[in-house]
Simulated scan of single mutants.
Amino acid sequence: MSLIEARDLRRTFTLRRKVGRFRRQRHEVVAVEDVSFAIEAGETVGYVGPNGAGKSTTIKMLTGILVPTGGFVRVCGLEPAARRRELAGRIGVVFGQRSQLWWDLPLLESFDLLRDIFRVPRAAHADRLDECVELLEMGPFLHTPVRQLSLGQRMRGEVTAALLHGPRLLVLDEPTIGLDLESKVRLRRFLARLNAERGTTLLLTTHDLDDIETLCRRLVVIDHGRVLADGPLAGLRAEVARERTLVVDLERPVPPLELPGARVAHVENDGSRQHLVFDRERLTAAALITAVAERAPVHDVSVLEPEIADVIRRLYELRESRALPVVDR
């Protein structure tokens, strides 16, 4: 059984709009439509899309906060909305804009209260807390009231709070929003280690593409409430972003290289470093390097993969043209 299974998941909301001076008309808004995917234990999955795409609505249905209008969903073998309390003991949830910590209490006391709420054995709680304190470097502010913590410190506390009961699944909704670069790096490193060493499944929604690059091996892209693509990040790159960039360092400056199947995108150092863009379906990197070497002595080469932002942008473009590829997992 998959850790998360969603089939034809749908969620609508009813709004009332003013019509004339005294009447209001009911209007149905579809937030999520026919969303289907499965996530296995130990996976790290990025669930991404623009604002209003349906990401947070999906997360709320997976965690039992919202009841689906239609479709099927199981998380850790449970129906989330019907068995929300039992599910809370099997998953951890971190919302970047919401807190599960007690605002006026020292951070450590919040952790103690959560141990009682989840009925975690004292020894297991102490072991997990010690590990999180060490890896997230929280020792200096454990006794500081939550309201006095910086955003980065509070987010480290939020992640720890979500893990103290030993969940199989950690759901993170915009966990690095507003964090400084150092805090982001520390949090990503911790989450990667959590997945590698503990096998904790990670489901991550974010607008920070560095989060996806660092943590997620699989990407589910959603827009207008529907899944656009679902597959390994490498596979999506190969399918929808075929262009690669060959960076060549030459032993001497030369004019921009004009080669069949490639175009010069950028020139540095008077021509001794050139960025050549090519279509991997029509030309291999090896063939292009050979062609470059025939024109000028080569000192070094490297191939740059498309950035994740380019992959997602291309998916949206394909959606508009209704020419979306099918990506096998």
Rank of each mutant, 00 (worst) to 15 (best):
R154E: 14
L172S: 02
E43K: 12
D279N: 08
R168D: 12
I4M: 01
D210M: 09
G157C: 01
D180A: 05
L187A: 00
G20I: 00
F37D: 03
A323I: 00
T176K: 04
R17S: 03
R329V: 04
D127I: 08
L288G: 06
R242D: 01
S99T: 12
E137Y: 03
L259R: 08
I212K: 04
F95G: 06
G70E: 12
D8V: 00
T44D: 08
K55I: 04
R17Q: 10
E213A: 10
E137K: 15
I177C: 00
T214D: 01
R189T: 07
A287E: 15
L259M: 11
R90D: 03
L129H: 13
G64V: 11
L187T: 01
R188T: 10
A296N: 12
V30Q: 08
D328G: 13
T245H: 09
R98K: 15
D173K: 12
R154Q: 13
P297Y: 08
I289C: 12
P253D: 09
L250P: 07
R273L: 03
A287H: 14
A241P: 05
L259C: 10
A162G: 06
L215I: 11
D328E: 15
L283F: 10
E258N: 13
R280P: 02
R282F: 01
G199R: 14
L202I: 09
G71D: 01
T290H: 15
Y316M: 06
L276H: 08
A287G: 11
R85N: 05
P306A: 06
Q100G: 14
R319P: 00
R26N: 14
G157F: 02
H275M: 08
S183R: 04
A229L: 04
P255I: 08
Q25E: 15
L259D: 11
Q100Y: 15
T58F: 07
Q274C: 09
V133T: 09
R168Y: 00
V171S: 02
D300L: 04
A53F: 11
S150G: 13
E213D: 13
Q97G: 02
R242M: 02
S99H: 03
E134C: 15
S2L: 01
E5C: 13
L113V: 14
L194K: 01
I4H: 02
G271F: 07
P297C: 09
D34C: 03
D34G: 14
E28A: 05
T160P: 10
F37N: 05
L288P: 09
S150V: 10
A82P: 00
S36V: 10
A287Q: 15
F190N: 04
T144D: 07
V267I: 14
R119Q: 15
L283A: 04
R295I: 00
N269S: 14
G54T: 07
R26D: 15
E109Q: 15
G52W: 10
R90W: 03
V240P: 01
Q153Y: 13
G261V: 06
E33P: 04
G71I: 00
E158S: 00
D230M: 04
R154C: 08
S321V: 12
L250H: 11
A238R: 14
